[in-house]
Amino acid sequence: MTSSASLPDVAQLLPDLYQLVEIESPSGHAEAISRVMDVVEGWARALGAEVQLLAGGTRSFLFGEQQRPALILTHADTVWPLGTLEGMPFRVEGDRVYGPGTYDMKAGIVSAIHALRAIHASGGWPAGGLRLLLTPDEEVGSSSSRVHIEAAAREARAVLVVEPPVADSHALKTGRKGVGSFVVTLHGIASHAGNKPEEGASAIAEAARLIPAIHALARPDAGTTVSVGLIQGGSAVNVIPATCTLTIDVRVSSLAEGERVTASMHALTSSDPRVRLELSGGLNRPPFERGPQTMALYARAQALAHTLGFSLTEEVVGGGSDGNFTAPLAPTLDGLGAPGDGAHAAHEHVRLDRWPYHVALLTALLREV
């Protein structure tokens, strides 16, 4: 067993986490996100990293000789708007540290930096080198960074994603559902609801007929969920509604299910010939399907965790990450960030009693993969 003396000191982790959390960085706010990236770049340069500034705001930090490096995936954006710290301040309460973006995923960035520092201090980078990719838009679908993530994965021997583990556990993520969003817009005909309702064609009524058919596309036994999450329509209570929009969330465990749902969505038709149906959207993250290469990485992580004195488990989860993009291209293991709970919620926090073990695990994996 590894003694606790070999684990990183929480007192060293916390100041770096505080520095990142105090820079609020909501998705879409390029200047704020850049400030987080500037801090991380400073840390990386202190370790001798070669820095690459990529299109769309992504930054890449290269450590050691690059011959199929191990890739660490991180993101600088959070879901929290500017000003959140006023009502949700960074604070330590017992064995938990709270604040916006702590768990998802600024503590993951700090984990990666401290792992890199430990490796650097021990005498040099592993053969093949290491690469840290820091992206600006993971929380909103990675539209600008996806091309860089996939390009880096094609060159990598393995991908380690420092998103947090499964909430309130030591469970890594060995698979994720593919994520999609569709928008169905119905265009009907407006008319006076009292005087001439027969001249109108209700977009809302047609939406009501379509919703059961859309929900019927779900196949829970195959891991497929389909949910109409937003409905917007009508202009006034005394007007036959001319427009209605349905926004639909889709989660799939396999590419085949993604293709089936996509084809079925495109086959939707209006039962009222006076109402025109318009469809947009699709899958924006492919499924991260659990495969033998990921499970081999997990088995190694599990063995290393045992030597560090804790038990590791794994799960397939419904939420997406940038690991969805890399899993088809390189062996990928997710959930290697800081343990805690409350992603996107007011009780977001990191478990300080568990965090050092996961930093030590990440360090060991980076040395060995």
Rank of each mutant, 00 (worst) to 15 (best):
residue 117 R to L: 10
residue 141 G to F: 14
residue 247 T to G: 03
residue 145 S to G: 09
residue 103 Y to G: 00
residue 28 G to I: 10
residue 95 D to L: 02
residue 56 G to E: 00
residue 356 P to N: 08
residue 275 V to P: 02
residue 20 L to G: 06
residue 56 G to F: 13
residue 215 H to V: 15
residue 291 G to H: 15
residue 77 D to H: 05
residue 61 F to R: 03
residue 112 A to W: 13
residue 85 L to R: 06
residue 125 W to N: 08
residue 351 R to V: 04
residue 52 Q to C: 14
residue 41 E to A: 10
residue 329 L to V: 14
residue 89 P to S: 09
residue 171 A to L: 06
residue 220 P to Q: 11
residue 173 K to M: 11
residue 158 A to L: 04
residue 131 R to A: 09
residue 207 A to T: 12
residue 305 A to F: 11
residue 11 A to C: 01
residue 68 R to S: 15
residue 335 G to L: 05
residue 120 H to C: 09
residue 11 A to E: 08
residue 250 V to I: 15
residue 132 L to H: 06
residue 27 S to H: 04
residue 85 L to T: 10
residue 233 G to N: 04
residue 350 V to W: 03
residue 313 T to C: 06
residue 21 V to W: 02
residue 25 S to I: 11
residue 292 P to C: 04
residue 155 E to N: 08
residue 92 V to D: 00
residue 327 A to N: 04
residue 115 A to L: 10
residue 201 A to T: 10
residue 358 H to V: 06
residue 260 R to M: 08
residue 50 E to Y: 02
residue 147 V to I: 15
residue 276 R to M: 03
residue 45 R to F: 05
residue 22 E to D: 13
residue 322 D to V: 10
residue 264 S to E: 15
residue 160 L to W: 03
residue 64 G to C: 13
residue 238 N to A: 11
residue 324 N to P: 09
residue 186 L to G: 02
residue 31 E to G: 08
residue 71 L to K: 01
residue 270 S to V: 12
residue 170 H to L: 02
residue 305 A to Y: 06
residue 81 P to A: 05
residue 50 E to K: 12
residue 25 S to G: 06
residue 236 A to H: 11
residue 328 P to D: 00
residue 72 I to T: 06
residue 99 G to P: 09
residue 226 V to T: 10
residue 94 G to I: 11
residue 137 D to C: 07
residue 119 I to R: 02
residue 342 G to F: 13
residue 205 A to K: 08
residue 43 W to A: 05
residue 72 I to S: 01
residue 9 D to L: 09
residue 283 L to C: 09
residue 215 H to F: 14
residue 303 A to N: 02
residue 105 M to T: 13
residue 231 I to H: 03
residue 111 S to P: 09
residue 244 C to I: 08
residue 352 L to I: 07
residue 343 A to K: 01
residue 45 R to Y: 06
residue 240 I to E: 00
residue 85 L to C: 02
residue 173 K to F: 10
residue 349 H to N: 14
residue 229 G to N: 14
residue 61 F to I: 06
residue 17 L to A: 05
residue 153 A to L: 04
residue 281 G to L: 07
residue 175 G to V: 12
residue 318 G to C: 08
residue 77 D to S: 05
residue 158 A to C: 13
residue 136 P to K: 03
residue 139 E to P: 05
residue 11 A to F: 04
residue 130 L to A: 07
residue 311 S to P: 00
residue 222 A to Y: 05
residue 7 L to E: 02
residue 327 A to F: 06
residue 337 G to N: 01
residue 148 H to M: 05
residue 16 D to M: 12
residue 297 L to V: 13
residue 56 G to V: 10
residue 7 L to H: 11
residue 130 L to R: 01
residue 38 D to Y: 05
residue 20 L to V: 12
residue 37 M to D: 01
residue 289 E to F: 01
residue 362 L to C: 13
residue 144 S to M: 04
residue 60 S to D: 01
residue 251 R to M: 11
residue 368 E to S: 15
residue 45 R to T: 14
residue 131 R to N: 08
residue 303 A to L: 10
residue 306 H to G: 15
